[in-house]
Design a protein around this nucleic acid. Structure first.
Lengths: 133, 133
DNA sequence: CAGTATCCTGCAAGATACTG
DNA sequence: CAGTATCTTGCAGGATACTG
């Protein structure tokens, strides 16, 4: 994985996707690469026990709408990345927690976010150069 | 990065994004997390010298349209992730190559794809459970 | 071969209002 | 508080045709 040495033969197209179903791989990749999913999962990690209520997550993610938070959380629950617990109180309280599966995604996602934080300035520079010609 | 220990205090919302401009971080994250960007960069890596022509890349990415390949390659070039060289021949030949910046993205992307390949079955299982209730 | 150009469509996602 | 429900809109992205 992540080999950098030169190759002398053209790659086999099947090498990238181990799956028989490339569309399914694409779809899941789209979901785990989604910005809101990434932010939500990494936000949950920051709380004690990887556990927080709806409003707490919302406060930590600038720019997310209530709708997108709801929708993305529901999808993450469906995918088995977070669990959802409802407390029968007034006013209502709902807590979300990373599952074990969700936790295994943290490292790759953090690596991606780290890359973005580290290189956004260089990317912007490249864009300016590209645009002025 | 990627710490897993429990915390006792709620996180500072600013912790996730080191940038002053959260929207810019979101935007770049969206781009590097895009499925076509990921496939293109990882595909280029598989060629000798991380270098291949348009049609060769196209063959390696099942399901991508010519339009999306063109558009995504142009964006990657603009962001400084790939370089583009045109050979004045007939028929025309255009080669794309990973830049140094692009190569630094390979490891995080490969980790993400590895996760997808390793866990897609479990995610599907979770989805079936969720859907039938 | 490696693109543009054009048309077209669905759906992602914002805004707003309502509620158990 | 943590959601639904509804309406609306932009634009991602497919299909197709053309070209240096």
């Amino acid at each position: 994985m992540g080999k950098r040495e030169n190759r002398t033969k053209p790659p086999d197209p099947a090498t990238l996707c181990k799956s028989k179903d490339p569309a399914a791989v694409r779809e899941l990749l789209t979901k785990v690469g989604d910005k809101w999913s990434i932010f939500i999962l990494l936000t949950l990690e920051m709380f004690p026990d990887c556990r927080a209520r709806f409003s707490a997550v919302e406060k930590c993610i600038p720019g997310i709408s209530q709708k997108m938070l709801t929708v993305t959380l529901r999808n993450l629950e469906r995918d088995g990345m977070v669990s959802r617990e409802i407390f029968p109180e007034v006013p209502p309280r709902v807590e979300y927690q990373l599952t074990k599966l969700g936790e295994t995604l943290l490292e790759p996602l953090q690596a991606l976010l780290d890359w973005v934080n580290a290189n956004s300035e260089q990317v912007r520079k490249s864009q300016r150069l590209f645009d002025q010609k």
